Amino acid sequence: MKTTHETQQWGIRSASFWMTLFVATGIIFIGVRFIINPGAGAIGYGIPLISNDDLPFGRIKGIRDIFSGAVLLPLLLLRMRKATAWVFTSAIIVPAADFLIVLSANGPSDISHLMIHGLTVAYMTITSFLLFKS
């Protein structure tokens, strides 16, 4: 059984804490951008919106991105490393799916957007490893 002392040791002195916070706040920022300016958000994602009728889809993505980041913040604040590790690791499916969506929509020539999503997967995988490491 984990003691309170063991739980309290993980926090602001840990690289995995800051790496997780970086992703959480980054995806919240991206979500806010999708809500405020769905067109710019979609271009950054790699699949531009076609018409104003598509704006609600950008905003839907925005609120989901905000949730994806916000769900990690209480876990970080409470220094719940294992819970953070499981939630963060589960979330790797999002940039992995984004990579595949951009690949299927734009093909392999869209290197810049594929790199953004692919490097996010790599960064999150490394962070997940550090979160689980005792």
Rank of each mutant, 00 (worst) to 15 (best):
K2Q: 14
K2E: 14
T3I: 11
T4K: 08
E6N: 09
W10V: 07
R13W: 08
A15R: 14
M19G: 07
F22Q: 02
A24T: 10
V32D: 03
F34K: 07
I35A: 09
I35P: 03
I35E: 11
I35D: 11
N37V: 04
P38F: 00
P38G: 00
G39M: 03
A40L: 14
L49S: 05
I50L: 14
N52V: 04
N52P: 01
N52Y: 05
D53A: 11
D54E: 05
L55K: 04
F57P: 01
F57D: 04
I66E: 09
F67K: 03
L73V: 12
L76R: 06
L77Q: 12
M80R: 14
R81K: 15
K82G: 04
A83W: 10
T84N: 07
T84K: 10
V87R: 01
F88C: 07
S90V: 10
A91L: 15
I92F: 02
V94N: 01
V94L: 11
A97H: 07
A105Q: 14
G107M: 07
P108M: 13
H113K: 12
L114K: 13
M115Q: 13
H117T: 06
H117C: 11
L119P: 02
Y123W: 15
Y123K: 03
M124Y: 04
M124I: 03
I126P: 01
S128V: 07
S128H: 04
S128T: 05
L131P: 00
K133R: 15
S134E: 12
